[in-house]
Amino acid sequence: MNDKLIIAGKSYSSRLLVGTGKYKDFTETRTALDASGTEIVTVAIRRVNLGQNANEPNLLDTVPPSKFTYLPNTAGCYSADDAVRTLRLARELLDGHSLVKLEVLGDPQSLYPNVIETIAAAKTLVADGFQVMVYTSDDPIIAKQLEDIGCAAIMPLASLIGSGMGILNPWNLQLILDRVSVPVIVDAGVGTASDAAIAMELGCDGVLMNTAIAGAQNPVLMASAMKQAVEAGRSAFLAGRMPKKLYSASPSSPTAGIIAPTRS
């Protein structure tokens, strides 16, 4: 079946996007990414450690941009200006690469998005030629505004970043899906495979996760579980689920031809 995820004109076979943070080492990072089948990986942009050996291993060697589509993020940015500067550095670092993940945070306890700063940064970045995949709240009106600004994908949270609390408000995700025509990718909050499957069954175009995999007891096995969950959820969405029949059962076996009851 030809069912590709298309973001900013480029098509991807996998609908699972994976973060590269919090793994034990680069080897585990790469093994988990391979097990997940992901094609798009998020990376952070950080100052070099001036005191350290400049020859220490580099993420780009283990997770080569030739094999994975990089999605540099603005994690840790609390203002539009900082986010824009970070992504301009990322574009320079990655030879003009323009597909980015914008996130502007509101406070360090909740890591909840500051949508006012997010919208300001999105406008600047789109005008500057970036293809912006934007982390946002699950507010359908903000999601639509971000699409209208020209963002390439809308990425609402399902619950707080790193919380693993799952899909807390499927109704809001549905409201976003009803309004937005660019890809909608659940970013943040997925904790286990069923969460990813639920997001996909709702009709989301993809799921982005980091801690759900890196924070599992066995990250590589969880990466594989997430791959299957996203595929299963997508197939279920495309298949079209049976209607729910509230408070009324419906037998699966024929009701005729049942043998005579022992006691009548």
Binding site: G19, T20, G21, K22, Y23, F26, T29, T42, V43, A44, I45, R46, R47, V48, L50, N58, L59, L60, Y70, P72, N73, A75, R88, L89, A90, E92, L93, L94, I161, G162, L208, M209, N210, T211
Partner: peptide, 28 residues
């Protein structure tokens, strides 16, 4: 402001410049 790689050979550092040097690291 970004210093483009193409200008590294000609760009001069001046007294008082504030530089940021960054790399890509693991992140979500």
């Amino acid at each position: 402001e970004i210093i483009p790689r193409s200008t590294f050979a000609t760009a001069q550092l001046n007294d008082g410049d504030k530089l940021e040097i960054v790399v890509a690291v693991g992140g979500g």
